[in-house]
Design a protein around this nucleic acid. Structure first.
Length: 215
DNA sequence: GCGACAG
DNA sequence: ATCTTGTCGC
């Protein structure tokens, strides 16, 4: 927690898009082998074409503790990121950024480590309260905590559960929300994130089949 | 002390 | 995160 408090002073909460390329990042986990599978999918800013992908397999060395997610997932992500040949203009994480008890979620941490504008896009709440956004796609409501706005609740698909968007580093909240909507590919999650999720699950299943001796 | 709690 | 089975709506 002390590390988070120290690093958050380095965050820059301004800057904007649009971005020519956006990277989606995700991590899956296999309990039996205690291995983490990280994946990065770099896509065009409109979420229409995949430009590059990279993966990594790393042994888990930190437990999952709410509020300390980055210490568990970041090593595997960095490993996969190193394999990229291109350098994305921005990255979207599967988890929160500023919408965190100490205002330093995994999106903030990765943004600083990778030196890039970063966005947190989570499927569920960690901290904060909010009103439900209207049912139509594009509706947004502020996410509040302790009297301050820490993010936005965004309806990415009509009638589907909203996602929680917050700033990581080097980006304004408006630009973060805009980027999430820009990379929409027809599903609840931004297309880069959704593809990264498919990629890491595929990698995990292949590794599992390999260990069990499937030909 | 009790309940909440990203992935 | 992962697992499991049925149900719901387009």
């Amino acid at each position: 927690m002390a590390i988070q408090l120290k690093l958050r002073a380095r965050l820059r909460l301004d800057g904007g898009g649009p971005f020519a390329t956006v990277a989606g990042i995700d991590v899956s986990y296999d309990e039996a082998s205690r291995l983490m599978f990280a994946g990065v999918v770099v896509m065009s800013g409109n979420g229409r074409q995949v430009l590059e992908t990279a993966t990594s397999v790393v042994a888990a060395r930190f437990p999952y503790i709410p509020g300390l997610l980055s210490f568990r997932e970041t090593p595997a992500v960095i490993e996969a990121w190193t394999k990229l040949k291109t350098r994305p203009d921005c990255l979207i994480c599967d988890g929160h950024g500023l919408a965190h008890p100490r205002r330093f979620g995994i999106a903030c941490h990765l943004g600083l480590l990778l030196d890039l504008p970063s966005i947190g896009c989570a499927k569920s709440l960690l901290v904060g309260t909010h009103r439900m956004p209207r049912t139509r796609r594009g509706s947004v409501e502020p996410l509040l905590d302790r009297g301050e706005q820490i993010g936005a609740v965004v309806r990415t698909r009509h009638g589907v559960a909203p996602v929680y968007v917050s700033q990581g580093d080097r980006i304004s909240l408006d630009a973060a929300v805009q980027t999430v909507l820009d990379t929409f590919g027809g599903y609840r999650l931004p297309e880069p994130t959704r593809r990264a999720h498919l990629l890491v699950n595929e990698t995990r299943l292949l590794a599992k089949a390999g260990r069990s001796g499937v030909q």
